[in-house]
Nucleic acid binder design. Structure first.
Lengths: 120, 120
DNA sequence: AGCCTATTTCGAGTATCATCGAATTATAGG
DNA sequence: CCTATAATTCGATGATACTCGAAATAGGCT
């Protein structure tokens, strides 16, 4: 993962409203959630929600799929995992940094690792 | 971890310059790196660097320690791990992520950094 | 077509961020 | 005390973000 993309994704998550939005979507699971339902949960104006949603979609952290007149939103687990893997790589560059659990096993699929100290 | 703190830390990392700065510090390991040396590596004006450094320090992702006239900066691994744990928790809230124990009871959960990233 | 619901885009106001030179503080040494 | 070095704070400028109401678009129903 390029550092610019990681930064863009982190910035997208680095806003309380968007992080709450993302959390709602994650907890909705693979079924996803209609924009309207998200709005009910977050209780913010539709235009504000749409604005934040777009940031998450633009950075690939969330996917949108149309179902008739409603749009279903889903958190993109692979992209989040790639991001977590990237952060874990950064964090684990130092030898004395022991992983909490399997976090560093994540990046493998997406090539997030930049060849630093692996298997930390 | 509160969602506001997580958002603040993510926002702090969500800037290419700061992410590069953080990466430099992580790779410097526990020995840390003097601000001046970081500046040489990043090749940005001192005042700009100081500004970004402050953001990372304010969000507790980086620690500063004075040694005579120079300031040594160190990445704070525990705080980064807590952040990664929080993100992993968010990610693993969904059933298809094979949550360990009561991972779905996220809302009040604060056990961010304790091994629940299992099969995610 | 005409209408209805769901959602986005537009536009504008306010707020926060990023950048960088100049001035300032902090510490050590002569 | 005076000077030198290290790093921060100040101040100003341009850019970008956040918010939200109003208007526009998309899709389905009658």
């Amino acid at each position: 993962m390029k550092i610019e993309q990681a930064a863009r994704q982190l910035e997208a998550l680095g806003n309380t409203t968007r992080l709450e939005l993302y959390r709602v979507l994650v907890r909705a699971g693979t079924a996803g959630l209609a924009v309207g339902h998200v709005q009910e949960k977050l209780a913010i104006p539709a235009s504000t929600l749409s604005h934040h949603l777009r940031r998450l979609v633009d950075t690939e952290l969330v996917e949108r799929e149309r179902q008739a007149t409603t749009l279903i939103c889903r958190a993109s687990y692979p992209h989040m995992q790639a991001l977590i893997g990237y952060l874990a790589d950064e964090c684990c560059a130092d030898a004395n940094c022991r992983p909490v659990s399997g976090a560093t096993a994540l990046p493998a699929a997406d090539g997030a690792s930049q060849g630093r100290i692996k298997g930390c």
